[in-house]
């Protein structure tokens, strides 16, 4: 199929018809699955190894985390709306939605920081037990991913303010969006497997 497309073009762009960057991002996301998979497995293995410290059901505040989850889910929606706006050539709306996405991400990370401090106060330190180490490492690692996403979104906003983020560069927004949705998907996993199955 790709070959046929190739023959038809005078100057073939790429063999798959997809840009290198987009292909690279998907390849990278495939790799990330193994990374988060390893951390989630570590958590699962240790979820009951509390070493006399607080257990998951002692500390988890499901209503609070649920709100965080909704916020992150909502940010995925605003992310696609940003891309959609840019594809229509609406740079202002694109900027607004990008900024909203970053804000929602920041709310999520803020919620996580709040949650961590609350857990700390209840005696769940990073070194308390295999459970606590695994929990903080997994959710912290996810939080770092969200934070990196926020930085990238804010950079996009700055680029957009300089007028350099036009319809033709929608793919940049699309790629950062894919990363953002991936981080959201990971949270869908974490929220269910870590929080709800307690």
């Amino acid at each position: 199929m790709a070959e046929a497309a190739l023959d038809a073009h005078e100057h073939p762009e790429t063999n798959t018809g997809m840009s290198n960057s987009k292909l690279a991002l998907w390849v990278f996301l495939g790799s990330e699955c193994l990374l988060f998979g390893g951390l989630i497995s570590t958590y699962l293995l240790y979820r009951n190894e509390t070493n006399g410290g607080p257990t998951a059901s002692d500390v988890f505040e499901i209503p609070f985390t649920s709100v965080s989850s909704f916020v992150l889910l909502l940010s995925s929606l605003t992310m696609v709306l940003a891309l959609s706006a840019l594809r229509r050539g609406d740079e202002t709306r694109n900027r607004i939605w990008l900024l909203t996405t970053a804000m929602l991400g920041a709310v999520f990370v803020g919620g996580q920081v709040y949650e961590f401090t609350a857990f700390l106060r209840e005696g769940l330190g990073f070194t308390t037990s295999p459970f606590s180490s695994a929990f903080y490492t997994l959710t912290g690692f996810h939080g770092v991913h969200v934070s990196v996403g926020i930085v990238m979104l804010m950079s996009l906003v700055v680029v957009s303010l300089k007028g350099d983020l036009s319809k033709e560069r929608a793919e940049t927004v699309e790629l950062i969006g894919l990363y953002w949705h991936f981080v959201d998907v990971v949270w869908i996993f974490i929220f269910t497997v870590v929080y709800l199955t307690v």
Partner: peptide, 17 residues
């Protein structure tokens, strides 16, 4: 192909872990 990378990564991760 893109779905392949994603599903492949998740499938492999699921199997080994």
């Amino acid at each position: 192909l893109f779905s392949g990378f994603f599903v492949g990564g998740i499938a492999l991760a699921s199997i080994v872990y």
